[in-house]
Design a protein around this nucleic acid. Sequence first.
RNA 1: GCGGAAGUGGCGGAAUUGGCAGACGCACGGGACUUAGGAUCCCGUGGCCGAAAGGCCGUGUGGGUUCGACUCCCACCUUCCGCACCA
Length: 838
Amino acid sequence: MPEYVASAIEPKWQRFWEERRVFERRPGDSRPKYYLLEMLPYPSGDLHMGHMRNYTMGDAVARYMRMRGFNVFHPIGWDAFGLPAENAALQRRTHPRTWTLNNIARMKEQLQRFGYSYDWSSEVSTCEPEYYRWNQWFFLQMFKRGLAYRKKSRVNWCPECQTVLANEQVVNGCCWRHEETPVEQKALEQWFLKITSYVEELLGGLDKLTGGWPERVLTMQRNWIGKSEGTRVSWAVAGTAKTIETFTTRLDTVFGAVALLLAPDHPMVDDLLVGLPGGASIARKVEALRRQSRHAQVVGEVEKEGIFIGRFAVNPLSGEQVPIWVSNFVLMEYGTGAVQAVPAHDQRDFEFAQKYRLPIRVVIQPREGKPLLPSTMREAFTGHGRMVDSGPYNGMGSEKALEKMTDDLVAPGKAERLVLYRIKDWGISRQRYWGTPIPVVYCDACGVVAVPEEQLPVRLPLEVEITGTGLSPLLNVPEFLNTSCPTCGKAARRETDTMDTFVDSSWYFYRYLSPREEKGPFDAATVEHFFPIDRYVGGAEHAVLHLIYCRFWTKMMRDLGVVSHNEPVTRLFNQGMVIKDGAKMSKSRGNVVSTDEMIEEYGADTARLFTLFAAPPEKDMEWTDAGVEGCYRFLQRLYRLVAKHAPRLREVPLTAAAAVPAKPGTAQKLNAQERQVLRKAHQTVRRVTTDFETRWHFNTSIAGIMELINELYALEPLEEAVSPAVLKEALAMAVLLVSPYAPHIAEELWEKLGQAQSITETSWPSYDPELAREEEYEIVIQVNGRVRGRIRVSGDLDEKELLQQALADAAVARLMSGQRVAKTVVVPKKLINIVLAR
RNA sequence: GCGGAAGUGGCGGAAUUGGCAGACGCACGGGACUUAGGAUCCCGUGGCCGAAAGGCCGUGUGGGUUCGACUCCCACCUUCCGCACCA
């Protein structure tokens, strides 16, 4: 008996696919296109199970779509710039480039050992000048249009990485790479991309992605953009000519304001203290609040604190004077850095008022329930209702009052309608070596000068010493640093900051279509043909960063005129994580299963099959050695079954399988067992096809194929039970169905069955609905909704006959003795429920 | 607190439209083959009562709708993920 030896089969077929270049895109292919993309890996050194799961899902779909006749484009590349390469270089005394290229070589080999059907001729690596020169080109286009600009700003600084972090890279006030390291603030000249110019479009576009993108991702993007519509209001400072601007979304509550609160960093605080008695001691307290608030962003929520600074502001609608406080919970970064304090109708203000015994003034009464009393309130009422104690607005609905009050303040110029967003422009400057140089020169005479396009790429020099300090190593490379001004020709200095690596990953999937293109970032015609991406598969951790940046990039490119679509990705699939012993696989937890060991012990097909079988793809999956073993056993069973019968079947032509339609009337000539085998086989084709087309639940597809194989084993010896033609058809179907998941064993068995073509050139099997139809059904008999018996009937029984047969059942008859049938409910082919009169 | 997802045997999971709860796999028990079995093949396997026939209970909890609810409605509990003083 031949045994299944994965290590003998897999290299053979990998070589076969590679030599024939079967997965490479060919120009002029007229079949309908399908662009299937998985998120490109960072070349960290080893392919881990998370990658493996991602790519196995993608590959199953790629192979399926290819068999369905699509011109599938399925590329892969490397997100090759980034900080870990510098850290590794420091530790191992090597060059970031060497480390990166070695990792790429190693991971590429690992990917190939899994038999993924990538078009390797489209491979892209973002650290190569031929790629990053176009990052620079895009930067210049944006610079020309004012979409890339420089400003001094307080930036997030990770003392561990010694670099600036984007807002998106700050997690709980700490660095996203160093979860224990609080982020500090530092003022630096930085380059920004004006993502806020596209904010409304980025937000509005989310509605159009509904259905194609997971709701979760859309919600996270909406929250991240954080649009809020409100009013900017001017409050006069009593006894001065100064005014303070507040921002509120609830102007309707303004008569309930009992104070005006300033952020500790508000620029007017110091001015207001000048000349006040006791100003010096107040200033000391404010200084303490400032230090605390800078730290508070790091730590999270802290106790609300504040101090009355001895001045009063005039409520622009009521004319009332309220005290001005400085408080630690007002953020300078959002809105105007000043807010009205309305304890009755804002929970934060409520807590603040409790602490400092400020009055609580109710100005909106709920439409239902008991009226609010300041003395008994436990929390703020933030809903809408009826206006009270609000002068001329009393009795109005608060929604209406909000509009009226806004109009009344806007007219005399005391207020302005304002839309605010949480999202900020994208800071892309990094004080790091291993990244794309920003193509800008600083000239004493001409200022900031863009490097002319024809001088691109500005190459990253390779002769550097990585120091690991906060300053870019490029400062120590005179050949790079010192240049001449493109405008006046005098001595000038190059920008030494490099770009955030999220720039690299914002458009890499365009470059795949023409990776060697030299006249532009990509070949426009090819891009037009293949875009948008039909399916993008990757982890949920990129829901806001990468997936907002790349949407921005596409819209920006559309405005440059290099693409014509608005969104890069029509459908997004988020796969779950790989879990072991209850936690995400990670080196620090020591629960990593190596992909190399999996291949050595079981082979790629087993590993691929298990990752798909253990859980539905969108959920986290638990990795268990026992589960892997089970999938290995299944492949062995499949192999033994086909290998045993194949020698007799080599010359038998395939009839119904592989899209050759069955001849009408074939079914009648089959015996009962043949009908049973073909029925199960065709049902399984239907089931697996449906899963691919609708919900990607590969776990149930694989279970279905297992059932088919189990049923065939149950009929052994098959050579006595069914004709060679039927057996060949059933085995061929099983092999074709398993091929997207376990492609190597499938090719091997396909060959053993005498099929000359590779599966990659074979069509997906179609099923014959007539053959898949059940001839007999087991009907469940319920009495009063409880299962009391079951009978076998052929499909075309009407309700009357069915009831008759049901009543003939001994158990049912006993239960019904002496009782009257009130009604019967029949579900065709499934059950009959007899309801007795009470 | 807000937003999202989820809760089913010893375990991973299945049940596609309100219609047999537990497919498939693991683990476990029994048997066959065997010098041997940690290989392979076959049978069994939600809980309780029962010798059996059979009965009762059972999808996080409590209600409801229905002939019939894992599935729909209401209230609640728990877990995971994301955001979190955004005015």
